[in-house]
């Protein structure tokens, strides 16, 4: 059933953010360290494991998961409509330069660091 797919994501989300929060407590940081990433890792591990065993998710379960991911872009659009855009534009020069230069600089670093990744791969 499709709901199994939705439930599997829910399970991964709770397990992942539980570990993320635990990690946060252990590191003395308030909140969640990488919970969503850990949850994603669980989903990757479960689905890859089942596929390797030759028993992937039933078609309807997979459909449930795909349904949620098809909602991803609409959810992002809703998210963009509730951002504090006014604050971004009225933060003045400090906010604009600090945020803007950090963004553009980080973008320009991407090819540099990706290159480290690909050169490592070719060494193997």
């Amino acid at each position: 059933m499709e709901i199994y797919g939705l439930g599997i994501i829910a399970f991964c989300m709770f397990a992942g953010t539980f570990i993320g929060n635990l990690l946060g407590e252990l590191l003395g940081v308030k909140g969640d360290v990488g919970g969503v990433g850990i949850a994603m890792l669980f989903l990757v591990l479960i689905s890859n494991y089942l596929e390797a065993k030759g028993k992937p998710f039933p078609e309807k379960t997979a459909k449930g998961i795909e349904f949620v991911s098809s909602l991803y872009i609409p959810i992002v659009v809703a998210m963009s409509s509730i951002q504090n855009v006014v604050a971004a534009f009225s933060g003045g020069a400090v906010a604009f330069l600090a945020g803007g230069l950090a963004t553009i600089g980080s973008m320009l670093l991407i090819p540099l660091i990706s290159k480290i990744g690909t050169s490592q791969e070719s060494k193997k």
């Binding site: 989300m13 992942g16 953010t17 969503v36 991803y72 609409p74 959810i75 963009s80």
Partner: peptide, 16 residues
């Protein structure tokens, strides 16, 4: 719809 809960739920699902 655009809040943290559904956003994270949908992000996790994309890992499939």
């Amino acid at each position: 719809l655009g809040g943290g809960m559904l956003r994270d739920y949908a992000i996790i699902s994309t890992a499939y």
